[in-house]
């Protein structure tokens, strides 16, 4: 039997779920409180920002008030160049995500299934996982130019590894007793894979895919910062150079909206595909 390396732990801890501490105060379980309290925090934050900027507590040129940012958002939404840039960034993100996570699934499945791949590749996967891969953005720019390709590659590279690591972790999380049970039923290798290994791995693997989608947008924007002619990252850069900080803020808010929409979509897909908890 090949020595199995320390089983990789699920590398991704999802932070987006609010820790489920039982609310002691029954008031905190009311829907209007659950919705109202975060809204109140938002209002206070935006209000403080507005006041600080309007009263000159912070320089309104570098930190324009919230109202200006909001006006800039409305202004941007009427501009064709904004929608074009958003479309470019979205394409880079989704293409990079699809390529990166597909390759990640394939490599993760090989590494998680065959001990020879695990032994040969695991040290490199760990090494690359711990390398700040955004540092490769200038290299990709040199290799693939100012167009979309270098951003797609950046997005793919950055979201490749969480998928690999979580796929390996998922595949190695199959319970030894469950394997034994399948043996007592005389299950074939493919039956064990499709009826046991794959469904066991799916939730952990999908957590990696969710992270990958978030990272893909990050990769695309970093790629655009380093060198591009189109995209939302380019807009943020240009508005800042022109000291149109409110417009820059507005683009960032729209990026947050795009990120949230993508996240909501993948979350929806997860709920459709994985209806159980392990």
């Amino acid at each position: 039997m090949t020595t199995i390396q320390t089983p990789p732990q699920p590398a991704v801890v999802r932070a987006e779920t609010v820790p489920h501490t039982k609310p002691k105060d029954p008031l905190l379980s009311r829907t209007w409180v659950k919705v109202g309290l975060p809204l109140l925090v938002l209002a206070l934050g935006v209000g403080a920002w507005e006041v600080a900027s309007q009263t000159g507590l912070v320089n309104p040129i570098t930190v324009p008030p919230a109202s200006d940012t909001f006006a800039a958002m409305i202004d941007l939404s009427t501009k064709d160049y904004f929608w074009h840039a958003a479309w470019i960034t979205l394409q880079e993100t989704l293409l990079g995500f699809l390529i990166g996570s597909t390759l990640g699934l394939v490599l993760g499945a090989l590494t998680g299934t065959f001990a020879v791949f695990r032994t040969a590749l695991w040290p490199f996967i760990v090494a690359i996982q711990n390398t700040p891969r955004v540092a490769l953005a200038p290299v990709f720019l040199t290799w693939f130019g100012f167009g979309m390709t270098s951003k797609v590659v950046m997005a793919a590279v950055i979201c490749f590894f969480p998928v690999v690591i979580n796929t390996v972790a998922g595949l190695s999380s199959v319970d030894a007793n469950a394997r034994m049970l399948f043996r007592t039923y005389g299950a074939t290798t493919s039956q064990t894979f499709f009826r046991l290994t794959l469904p066991t791995a799916a939730p952990v693997t999908f957590a990696g895919i969710k992270t990958a989608l978030t990272l893909a947008l990050l990769g695309a924007i970093v790629g655009e910062f380093v060198g591009a002619s189109e995209g939302l990252g380019v807009l943020v850069n240009e508005f800042n150079f022109q000291l149109e900080v409110a417009m820059g803020f507005a683009v960032v808010v729209y990026l947050a909206v795009i990120g949230l929409i993508l996240y909501a979509l993948i979350e929806w897909l997860e709920r459709r595909l994985i209806t159980w908890s392990n």
Binding site: A202, I274, S277, N278
Partner: peptide, 10 residues
């Protein structure tokens, strides 16, 4: 039959 029920959660 084992000590653990080993049911498939899906």
């Amino acid at each position: 039959m084992l000590q653990q029920s080993v049911l498939m959660p899906w």
